[in-house]
């Protein structure tokens, strides 16, 4: 199953696949912008500020999606020791940090007119902030080691442990806000959301998911190119690429 998954992934990340994915993302993002800014009506209480929903929620979705991908890729790396899993974890973590920061910034921007403050220690905001800090730490760990294999192993451990920390953090922050104070603050009541707004939100989530795939694809290509530069520099014999040498060695060994 893993190998067929890898084949599909390989097809998407080929140069032509990357270009098609890029255009599809652009079209979806444009459709989402039209749905969010033109088609969808302003909210009865929050006016046009409620339009931030259509980018805030997809950003937060990408934040959690990407760290889940880091978790899975980290386990896959530790199990198989194949560099592609490490590259996937690195790519997904970088994209995840971007969208976590974006989700927090957009939430803050939305909170100002609705709650009258840029910041509130709401459980979800606080947990997302802790998540951001954990994965900033993850990216820092990736810069620690000179050895690619060690870097991959260390990062994978942080990727696994960091993700397992999230539910415990969420629980602690929720209780900390007050076990007895009732529910958390909601920006929009889920039940009161109009159908047209739901469609706009779904379009946004879809467009951002495509964007995630595109960004990870480009970031994976960057990782491969960086690895190739290192391999070329370390290639022991002149006039031969490192990969060819590795293949020779493998066939000689039988």
């Amino acid at each position: 199953m893993v190998s067929s998954l890898e084949r599909v992934a390989g097809r998407i990340t080929a140069p032509r696949g990357e270009r098609i994915l890029g255009w599809a993302t652009l079209v979806a993002m444009a459709a989402s912008a039209v749905m969010s800014l033109v088609v969808s009506p302003p909210d009865a209480q929050q006016g046009n500020a409620a339009r931030l929903l259509y980018i805030h929620v997809p950003s937060a979705w990408l934040a959690y999606l990407s760290f889940a991908v880091v978790f899975v890729a980290s386990i896959a790396y530790l199990a198989t020791r194949r560099t592609r899993w490490d590259r996937l974890a690195a790519a997904s973590a970088e994209v995840g940090v971007l969208f976590t920061a974006l989700a927090i910034a957009l939430g803050s921007l939305w909170g100002k007119p609705v709650w009258g403050t840029w910041w509130t220690w709401d459980p979800r905001i606080t947990t997302t902030t802790i998540l951001l800090l954990i994965y900033v730490g993850y990216l820092a760990v990736r810069r620690l080691s000179d050895s690619p294999a060690r870097r991959a192993r260390w990062a994978a451990v942080v990727g696994v442990v960091g993700f397992l920390d999230v539910p415990v953090s969420y629980l602690s922050v929720t209780w900390w806000r007050g076990l007895h104070q009732g529910t958390t603050i909601r920006l929009l009541g889920e039940s009161t959301i109009a159908p047209i707004m739901q469609v706009a939100l779904m379009t946004g989530v879809f467009a951002f998911t495509l964007l995630f795939l595109y960004l990870v694809t480009v970031r994976l290509r960057l990782g491969r190119l960086e690895d190739r530069a290192v391999a070329e520099a370390l290639s022991p014999r002149l006039g031969q690429s490192a990969e060819a040498l590795l293949e020779q060695e493998a066939s000689a060994r039988g």
Partner: peptide
């Protein structure tokens, strides 16, 4: 800070 609150929406979309 006009009642329509377009400013916040535009700022958010430009930032994104």
């Amino acid at each position: 800070v006009v009642p329509s609150l377009w400013g916040y929406a535009i700022a958010g979309y430009v930032m994104t």
